[in-house]
């Protein structure tokens, strides 16, 4: 049980190695690299997301071929977009974070890098109103077309239960 606990709370060897080489690959001196439980986390400005994702996927040392998850967290005035990446060949993982102002949630789409991002982005657009530029078809995915509002946001009210 002891070493198991260590395993889940520290970077694994592959991700350690990634942390070593990442600054030289990305070549962005302003970026901060931090460790969150067992994941390497990087905060990105919105305009860098597309270029950095492209490098991360195509560079042979990073080789992030698998976009595990794309999620949006609503912090009232900020919408945070999380990209969880994983590499089958190198077996390391990392998280990219990008903060958007909730008044103007626009970011460039990465669906031309990973095709998996297509529906994830449509879902984020549907529930949170994030606009992904250059997305092939940014329609509503889960909700009906005539639905008004973005129910994922914290400001969207829930039903109050009424007795009939």
């Amino acid at each position: 049980m002891e070493d198991q606990a260590n395993k889940t709370t520290a970077l694994n060897a592959a991700s350690q190695k990634l942390l070593g080489i990442l600054p030289s690959i990305l070549n962005q001196p302003t970026l901060q690299y931090r460790t969150n439980i067992d994941e390497l986390t990087v905060n990105l400005p919105g305009d860098l997301v597309h270029t950095i994702c492209k490098i991360l996927k195509t560079h042979t040392d990073t080789a992030f071929d698998y976009l595990t998850c794309l999620s949006v967290v609503d912090y009232e005035d900020i919408l945070e977009i999380n990209y969880h990446l994983f590499s089958y060949t190198k077996r390391h993982k990392m998280v990219l974070k990008c903060e958007l102002k909730s008044t103007d949630p626009t970011i460039s789409s990465i669906s031309n890098i990973w095709r998996a991002a297509n529906w994830f982005e449509r879902e984020a657009h549907d529930l949170f109103g994030v606009l992904f530029e250059d997305h092939p078809s940014l329609d509503r995915l889960l909700l009906p077309d005539d639905f008004e509002g973005n129910p994922g946001l914290k400001s969207y009210p829930l039903h109050e239960y009424k007795e009939w």
Binding site: F147, P151, L158, H159, E160, Y161
Partner: peptide, 9 residues
């Protein structure tokens, strides 16, 4: 799901 925004009650 009685509080959900998308479910018919």
């Amino acid at each position: 799901y009685y509080r959900s925004y998308s479910v018919v009650m």
